[in-house]
Amino acid sequence: MHDAALSDQASLDALAARLAELRGRYPAADPAMVAEVVRAVLASMQGDLTPKEAVLLAGVEDLARTIANAKDEIAAVGVDEITDNHIPSATDELDAIVQHTAAATDQILETCETLDRVAGALDGELAASLQDATTRIYEACSFQDITGQRITKVVATLKTIESKVAHIVAVVGGAGAEASAPVSADAALLNGPQLPANAMDQSDIDRLLASFD
């Protein structure tokens, strides 16, 4: 408040000095006429911007320029191309990977089932050896389930990115934003496969389960 008063006084002093200078340069000017002109100008500013409002207006103008630049940049990036073509194409490719690996896995399993039937007709070590081999193949084929779940997570991530990009475009373009759907407690537990570095293995899970006993 004290600083503001000092600043106002400084402005008045500067104005008085400026008027004195003008009187020196234009001695013919009638001070009363100058005063009348100033009063008229000041009167015309009644209801116009205060200094704080002027600063605010400048800020708003900056913001408008930033938004306009962002719009230009988004247009230059070709967001429509990303949401209309790139992401749907990527998700289609991933879906195709899941379908092809599932089909290949089914063929492998069918072959294993044939080998199991052959093993059933054999005796002794040969039968045991053949069944052991098919067991290893069955175990390995479970990759398809894990791969499918991982790819489903990637597709979900791509769709989230698509939605966020559309949201940003809608906000910058002035449209209203859609609120995210709340996540239920059960859905919050659907984490899917973890990366090996983050995952608990079977022995970790056995220890955790045993801690309840």
Partner: peptide
């Protein structure tokens, strides 16, 4: 399941 987080094991238990 592929759900291997501790919170999943606890919820199941």
């Amino acid at each position: 399941t592929a759900e291997s987080k501790a919170e999943n094991v606890v919820a199941a238990k």
